[in-house]
Simulated assay, not measured.
Amino acid sequence: MLRVADALDGINRGLAHVIRWLALLMVLAQFAIVVGRYVFGVNSIAAQESVLYMHSTLFMLAAGYTLLVDKHVRVDVFYAGLSPRGQRRIDIFGHVFLLLPSMTALLYWSWPSVRNSWSILEGPIAVGGIEAVFLLKSLIPAFCVLIMLQSVALLIRLLCERPAQ
């Protein structure tokens, strides 16, 4: 089972190694947009939207990796004071009853919108923008699947490890 968890971790880890370069590309694109606008008087809606697309892609596709490395937002009002066994129970409860069901619901309810967007190849957000909103909307199910895969990997580890006293 731990090999399955390792394989699932590998998906998010590998994806993170690729998409992390979007952060640099996004900064460079934004810099070019600002220089173009204020130095040369040139403006491009598509270039501005490209930063939005890169930011969305980076955020949505890196969320699983963020969960993997335990850098997600955690409301630990009680969690920090619990024993390792108590923390493990909270983590298992969170994955089984909160995270996985909420991702399943988001995937289910967003799918018709994504499917419709692909069927009409939904166009730009603004006139002159990138004609690929259908790709942007596709990030929603990708986000759900990546989070669910990572949640399953973490759940496997939680259920296979020996609880500390």
Rank of each mutant, 00 (worst) to 15 (best):
M1H: 14
V4A: 15
A5P: 10
A5S: 14
A7M: 11
A7S: 13
L8M: 10
L8G: 05
L8I: 01
G10K: 09
G14A: 14
V18I: 13
L22I: 14
M26I: 15
A29R: 01
G36V: 09
V39H: 01
I45H: 00
A46D: 01
A47Y: 08
Q48I: 08
Y53K: 04
M54P: 05
H55G: 13
L58W: 13
L58P: 00
A62V: 14
A63F: 14
T66Q: 03
H72Q: 10
D76C: 04
V77S: 12
V77L: 15
V77C: 05
G81T: 11
R85F: 09
G86T: 05
R88K: 06
D91Y: 01
I92L: 09
F97E: 03
L98H: 07
P101D: 05
Y108M: 12
S113E: 12
W118G: 03
W118F: 13
S119K: 07
E122N: 06
I125G: 00
V127D: 14
G129Q: 04
E131D: 15
A132Y: 04
F134G: 00
L135R: 04
L135Q: 08
L136H: 12
K137M: 07
I140W: 05
L149M: 11
L149K: 09
I156G: 10
I156S: 09
L158Y: 11
L158N: 06
L159F: 08
L159M: 12
C160P: 11
Q165H: 13
